[in-house]
Amino acid sequence: MTTTAPPDPRESRVLSRVLGSPSVRLIGKRVLMAVPIILGVSILTFWVLSLIPGNAAQQVLGPDATAAQVRALEQELGLDQPAVTRYLDWLGGAVQGDLGNSLISGQPVSGELGSRLAVTGELVGLAFVISIGLAVPVALLAAYKPNRLVDRISMVVSITGLSVANYVLALLLVLVFAVQMTVFPAIGFVPLSEGVGANLHSLALPAAAIAFPLFCFYTRFLRGDLVDQMQGEDYIVTARAKGIGPWRVLLRHAFRNSSFGLITVVGLNLGTLIGSTVIIEQIFALPGIGQLLLQAINTRDFIVVQACVVVFAIIAVLANLVADLLYAVLDPRIRYGSR
């Protein structure tokens, strides 16, 4: 068999090892897959926005403006162009990193997006940490002795939490902790620069409103998976037959294997988590992306809407990529490639 020898065999070996590693291949594949996803999301957004009656020019000029004034502003903003042209125009800028200027304020979107991303990011991060941080220990305690007291209580709490929408919960939290007990502010945001304590204080209620239903869901899911493992898996019997303690069996053997399911669920749920910020930021008057998105929709500022949606899509894709990479870290069968 004759093959053309590569110029430097050593270099190509290193290169092929790096490129051949499952993690690198996975990342590459996912990044490539993200392109059509984000493109599709932006097209869909653009199309839906073009179906909504009214445009930014009318919003800026108000109901008293004459048709001629509106047409003039439409021309200035380029709104008189067909939707396809406008989309391609936007896309041309976006791929070069220019997300355009707001139709209403005329300011570059990227500047506005940065500061708002920090707020939403903090809110999402906080809700994420609270929900996982509480769900894991509660699920472990519940699964340690299924159908006993802790399990029953967590079941009742979870079912309640899952049956209440997070905006209803948000209003309840405001009523109890802000109006009656006045321990947390009802609205407003204190940036991190003014102190961590004050910042967390201002985010406590919104983060709790997002985190609680997620906590309930994760607890239920993880508890169920742990109990299935403990009762149905042969390697659990092996572990028990070794004579090791019940907590060790649960943590070392069952939890490690249950974590795969949890990661999948958490990854899939991140979209919901980000989505829920739209309403919650509105209720608590937080200057995040969700609030920006809602304002932009009301003013038909499609440039801003587009930017927000694309950011959300990128975050969702990244979250699922992280989930997939976590499997590889935790599951040796994936890490070494299946043989």
Binding site: E233, D234, Y235, V237, T238, A239, R252, H253, R256, N257, L330, D331, P332, R333
Partner: peptide, 10 residues
Amino acid sequence: DPTRSLNPTM
């Protein structure tokens, strides 16, 4: 079944 009786992630 030794395939199922050993912990696959350990």
